[in-house]
């Protein structure tokens, strides 16, 4: 068996990486904000927010895709408004695929960042404030650097989960070659094709290598960060 990828498979790899990257970059600021709210603030509706954020972990991905379609589809309440006013169409687009993976991976990201934030001594933030740092200054100069390993871990986990997301993507964004056909969707399509086993195997090996490389890279980065922080 030779391991030459077809152009369509390259395309699926490119789309997978692109979707996962967009998903992580767009959700990271929200994940940090929500993790901070849930860890450091007491407010009414905190439990509700916590539950809402974690729902994608316990619901079937297809259902998440369906809910997104209802809300953000061209005929949906929010989606219709976006389309009429900005000509923005999320359903069945690469950005839509990114959004679907972002929603699915969001709880993982929030959890990792929360864990890191719990380990940041609030006393250090108090010290920064006595030294003249305002709330944002303190957050940027003390809190974020101290939880950087956790943010990284959250981002890597979310990236890996985004690469693998299937149900929500296929429901909300479809399985369009060159637009939303990511590696898992390409794998599924290959299996649906007669004599597609060789292609399916190539895609599976590719996904495996990608996952392993991601894990190694994150471990290396985390070590470098910890060294930099003198721990």
């Amino acid at each position: 068996m030779h391991f030459q990828l077809t152009p369509a498979e390259f395309e699926a790899l490119r789309i997978s990486l692109s979707v996962a990257l967009r998903s992580v970059l767009c959700s990271l600021p929200f994940a940090i904000a929500i993790a901070w709210l849930l860890t450091r603030r007491r407010f009414p509706g905190r439990l509700l927010l916590d539950t809402l954020v974690h729902l994608p972990m316990v619901l079937p991905p297809v259902m998440i895709g369906f809910v997104l379609l209802l809300l953000l589809g061209v005929n949906g309440t929010v989606g219709g408004w976006l389309y009429r006013h900005f000509g923005l169409r999320l359903a069945f687009s690469t950005n839509g695929a990114a959004l679907a993976t972002a929603v699915m991976a969001f709880p993982l990201m929030v959890r990792a960042i929360r864990l890191a934030l719990d380990n940041v001594d609030a006393g250090l933030e108090e010290a920064a404030r006595t030294l003249g740092a305002g709330a944002w200054d303190c957050f940027a100069s003390i809190t974020v650097p101290l939880m950087a390993p956790g943010i990284l871990a959250g981002a890597v986990t979310a990236f890996a989960a985004s690469l693998g997301e299937f149900g929500a993507v296929i429901t909300f964004a479809g399985n369009i070659p060159g637009v939303t056909r990511t590696l898992p969707l390409a794998l599924y399509s290959a299996l649906q094709t007669p004599d597609g086993e060789a292609a399916a195997l190539r895609i599976a090996v590719l996904a495996l290598l990608l996952g392993a490389a991601g894990l190694l890279a994150s471990e290396w980065l985390a070590r470098a960060l910890r060294r930099r922080m003198g721990r």
Binding site: L124, A127, R129, T130, L131, G132, P145, M229, G230
Partner: peptide, 27 residues
């Protein structure tokens, strides 16, 4: 707090672990 200009040496010191001594002092 940040406008009071109160120098506070905490019992547990609270040096910033991600900064070296000079950057702690300059903070």
């Amino acid at each position: 707090t940040q406008q009071r200009r109160v120098g506070y040496v905490f019992q547990d010191l609270r040096l910033f672990p991600h900064l070296n001594v000079e950057h702690n002092l300059r903070y």
